[in-house]
Computed example of a mutant assay.
Amino acid sequence: MADVLTKEQRRRNMQAIRATHTSIEDKMSTDLWRRGYRFRKNVSSMFGKPDIAIKKYKIVIFIDSCFWHGCKEHGNIPKTNESFWLQKLARNSERDQEVTEYYQAGRWGIMRIWEHEIKQDYHVTLEKVIKFIEYAKKIHAYKTNKARSNFNPPG
């Protein structure tokens, strides 16, 4: 099927798609901030530019859109220039895997959330993120207390 938009219309449409500060990302981060969680958004100095990062607890959270990250349930391949899109979306998935493996190798907690999870049941997804953060805080506290108890000052 031919594209219903002209090349110029399609170009403007694609340029308007934002990589950061999407409505679902902003909603999630606003609610986490209101609940007292402090974090950095879209940290460009970190590998993969996580949507939410809490370095203190070594956690990163990625909110993956169904289209750009190749969701098996809701992602779709445009019919025009299909070979380009197949290659593009496959590379995005490979990059996501590389980022996940990078953080796992560094013993970071990593959470990936699909766009459709947020849209289908926002409150359940928000609670899932909060539980993830709280678990990381407990691990951090345990490691900190264990390190202090093993510390013997000289003298």
Score class of each variant (00 low, 15 high):
Ser23Phe: 12
Leu86Ile: 08
Ile59Asp: 04
Arg34Lys: 15
Ile139Ala: 09
Asn81Met: 09
Lys79Arg: 11
Ile59Ala: 01
Gly36Asp: 07
Asn92Val: 13
Ala19Phe: 08
Ser149Pro: 01
Asn152Ala: 12
Asp26Leu: 15
Tyr142Ala: 02
Ala53Tyr: 00
Phe39Glu: 03
Glu8Tyr: 10
Arg40Cys: 03
Ser149Asn: 06
Ile54Gln: 10
Lys128Gly: 09
Arg95His: 14
Pro78Val: 14
Val60Leu: 10
Pro50Met: 10
Lys79Asn: 15
Val99Pro: 09
Asn150Asp: 10
Trp108His: 11
Phe47Glu: 05
Ala90Tyr: 07
Val60Gly: 13
His21Ala: 06
Cys66Phe: 10
Asp31Phe: 06
Ser45Glu: 10
Val99Ser: 05
Trp33Ala: 04
Tyr57Ile: 00
Gly106Asp: 08
Thr80Glu: 11
Ala105Gly: 11
Ala90Asp: 15
Arg107Trp: 11
Trp108Gln: 13
Arg38Asp: 05
Pro153Ala: 12
His74Cys: 01
Pro78Tyr: 00
Phe151Gln: 14
Tyr122Gly: 09
Tyr37Glu: 05
His140Lys: 13
Glu8Gln: 15
Arg95Val: 11
His21Leu: 08
Pro78Thr: 06
Lys131Asp: 13
Gln104Pro: 04
Arg35Ile: 07
Ile118Phe: 01
Arg18Val: 00
Met111Asp: 06
Gly155Arg: 03
Tyr142Glu: 15
Arg11Gln: 14
Glu101Trp: 01
Glu134Pro: 00
Glu94Gly: 03
Ser44Phe: 01
Phe62Val: 06
Lys7Met: 04
Arg148Phe: 02
Gly48Pro: 10
Ser93Cys: 10
Leu32Asp: 09
Pro50Thr: 05
Arg40Val: 07
Ser29Ile: 00
Tyr135Thr: 06
Val129Glu: 00
Lys119Leu: 14
Arg107Cys: 05
Tyr57Ala: 01
Lys58Phe: 03
Ile24Glu: 15
Lys56Cys: 00
Glu73Phe: 11
Tyr122Thr: 08
Ile24Tyr: 13
Ile61Lys: 00
Lys27Gly: 01
Ile61Cys: 00
Tyr122Ser: 10
Leu32Lys: 04
Arg34Met: 08
